[in-house]
């Protein structure tokens, strides 16, 4: 890996070609882990909430009510507003908590990132309509 910050051109002037090596203290890996785990929590929250809105009309109505609490135009986009709201709360809320819990911990970023990828894959599977409709039927007992 090249870490030099300047290279001399043939005409003698300097040009920046790479980056300046960090002079700061090593930042714990927990901060990065908190950031991408929170992204997983947000996407997974969206997927799970969506499954249960399809499974239960009462829950769907509650989710719609959550969206109508604050989102402009919520009446026009229906329960989707509440799903977005809960995903946003899950994402940012978990990020705040995880950040303060993990910010001084030197975690293995690689191991946690692989776990994140698995989780994101599950969340993606859960938002595929044939999958969540089938799950909703199972939950509703049809």
């Amino acid at each position: 890996m090249r870490s030099t910050m300047a290279e001399t051109k043939p005409d003698g002037s300097n040009v920046e070609v790479a980056y300046t090596p960090s002079t700061r203290d090593r930042i714990p890996g927990g901060i990065a882990v908190a950031a991408f785990l929170a992204a997983f929590v947000g996407t997974f929250t969206l997927a799970v909430v969506n499954v249960f809105t399809v499974a239960s009309k009462d829950f769907n109505a509650w989710v719609y009510g959550v969206g109508k609490l604050w989102m402009p135009g919520a009446a026009g986009i229906g329960p989707y507003s509440g799903k977005e709201t809960l995903a946003l709360v899950g994402w940012l809320g978990s990020w705040i908590i995880l950040h303060f819990v993990l910010r001084k911990k030197e975690l293995e970023v690689g191991r946690w990132f692989v776990a994140f990828l698995v989780g994101l894959g599950i969340a993606t599977t859960l938002i595929w309509p044939p999958v969540y409709e089938h799950l909703a039927e199972l939950i509703a007992g049809h």
């Binding site: 890996m1 960090s22 990132f113």
Partner: peptide, 21 residues
């Protein structure tokens, strides 16, 4: 991650991988 870690991202393998992915 890019802004918080700065060039430490470039220097640390799994941070590079994480951000790229």
């Amino acid at each position: 991650i890019l802004w918080r870690y700065g060039v430490q991202v470039v220097e640390r393998k799994w941070l590079r991988y994480s951000v790229g992915v």
